[in-house]
């Protein structure tokens, strides 16, 4: 049995209602999860389900209102800076400082962790070595996402968080990114991603959780979930006519 690296217990996040600031609503409502070391875990849900907010609480970007979360045994609420040392994060927005090349950005991000980094090697990993001198603005959507992942890898994180990594990518770029995620996972990295792409959840993730309206409504392997929640196959179509029904009801014996 694998050991959990992320343990979330009854996590809650309240936001003021957009129309009435005095009222609040629960963006994340008592979410409990356990994610094993070395797995690719997907959080699924429609827009506004609370996926990003849940990730942001784990990443220390958002305060935890109630409940607890630990990553690798470290409490997120009380030691956010220790958490930041061991996680890598790719956010939905992936814009960077103007006027810096990919190479320079990687060196900068490494410096934020007080590390030095072999930017060439990292760019190799995400297949962007030939773009080392390019600016992020000149990259395609898929290249930008791969670069975001490279930035998230500068501190050799134990856990990598990817927020909707393939949204907006074309099929080739999407598959290319899945391969990258599998490679990183094969090397032992735990990966937590959000998506609303079912195919991605099914073929890429080893386990998934489904969220809606801030609540966790199901979790398990894709197979388990299909088994437990897929709709019953439709009943065999009816055949026969009213006479058959009449016969069934009144019997086949001849009457005199």
């Amino acid at each position: 049995m694998a050991t959990p690296i992320i343990a979330i217990d009854r996590l809650c996040k309240r936001y003021p209602l957009p129309d009435d600031k005095k009222q609040t609503f629960l963006a994340v409502n008592e979410v409990s999860l356990s994610i094993d070391a070395g797995e690719i875990f997907g959080i699924l849900g429609p827009n506004g389900a609370g996926k990003t907010t849940t990730l942001e609480m784990l990443e220390g970007l958002n305060d935890i209102d109630s409940g607890t979360a630990t990553i690798d045994g470290i409490d997120v609420g009380s030691s956010p800076f220790k958490i930041k040392e061991i996680i890598g994060v790719q956010l939905q927005a992936n814009e960077y400082f103007d006027n810096l090349s990919l190479e320079e950005l990687l060196v900068l991000f490494a410096a934020l962790y007080n590390r030095s980094v072999d930017s060439g090697e990292l760019l190799d990993k995400v297949n962007l070595r030939d773009k080392a001198k390019a600016k992020p603005d000149n990259l395609s959507g898929g290249q930008k996402q791969r670069f975001s992942i490279a930035c998230a890898l500068v501190n050799s994180p134990k856990v990598l968080f990817l927020d909707e990594p393939t949204t907006g990518l074309d099929p080739q770029a999407k598959r290319n990114l899945w391969d990258l995620v599998r490679e990183l996972n094969a090397a032992g990295m735990t990966i937590v991603l959000t998506t609303h792409n079912m195919e991605e959840a099914e073929v890429l993730c080893q386990r998934i959780a489904i969220m809606d309206h801030g609540e966790l409504i199901a979790q398990g392997t894709p197979q388990e979930l299909i088994h437990a929640h897929a709709p019953e196959p439709p009943a065999a179509p009816m055949h026969g006519n009213l006479e058959d029904v009449f016969l069934v009801l009144t019997g086949h014996e001849l009457r005199e």
Binding site: G60, K84, L91, A93, N94, E95, Y96, F97, L112, C151
Partner: peptide, 15 residues
Amino acid sequence: YRRKGILKRLFVTPI
């Protein structure tokens, strides 16, 4: 920087 999400990105590092 905030509009572009750069501050957010910086904030997930230990800076």
